[in-house]
């Protein structure tokens, strides 16, 4: 990942000193990276998705900005918070969708045909598992959030969490295996 330089740190400091506009600039600088993250997550399933991915990033930004209690120490901190925010946003959506399905609602039609093998685990179930993991080993959850929700690189995650890259590899391997085995037990 490219070095964002001291500018970001400075801007964050200004923002903490009360300059709200500084946050805008920080986000702007992190924007392209975040967009790339969202783009990866959405996959290249459909053309014309760039706009939609941008919308997701905007959403993340609004949530971050709206939360006055969040204090960014530096870029590391921001990425960490961004990852957490992404998780919250998506879990919120998943809850909302589930609620709507239950309500019946109008015109929930033209249902997708989901092919087998493509079946995806419910993000809500994953969230529950992540909460369980956080109770035992919070660092691994942080790592998963950084890598999966914020799209951080291994190198970056290592720097952020103050661990070696080799540890990132090992922790991820274990955390993913655990998550999968946990979901297998839950979902049946």
């Amino acid at each position: 990942m490219k070095d964002m330089g001291p500018a970001v740190t400075e801007l964050l400091r200004s923002w903490q000193d009360g300059d709200r506009a500084a946050l805008d600039q920080v986000v702007e600088q992190l924007y392209s990276q975040l967009r790339a993250v969202a783009g990866q997550q959405l996959g290249a399933e459909r053309e014309g998705h760039t706009l939609a991915a941008t919308a997701l990033v905007h959403e993340a930004y609004f949530r971050l900005q709206g939360n006055a209690k969040v204090q960014f120490n530096d870029r590391k901190h921001f990425l960490g918070v961004a990852a957490r925010a992404m998780r919250c946003i998506l879990v919120d959506y998943a809850r909302g969708r589930k609620r709507q399905k239950r309500d019946g609602g109008q015109q929930v039609t033209l249902e997708d045909f989901v092919a087998p093998g493509n079946s995806t685990h419910d993000l809500l179930a994953i969230n529950t598992a992540l909460e369980k993991l956080a109770a035992i080993d919070p660092r691994k959850v942080q790592l998963l959030e950084l890598i999966s929700f914020a799209g951080a690189t291994y190198e970056e995650a290592a720097a952020l969490l103050g661990i070696s890259e080799a540890t990132v590899h090992r922790d991820l391997k274990f955390a993913r295996a655990w998550l999968k085995s946990e979901l297998k037990g839950e979902g049946g």
Binding site: A52, A94, R97, T120, L123, F149
Partner: peptide
């Protein structure tokens, strides 16, 4: 799972 949810969200 994230991809699916993100797609809905965006």
């Amino acid at each position: 799972a994230i991809a699916v949810e993100a797609r809905h969200a965006v």
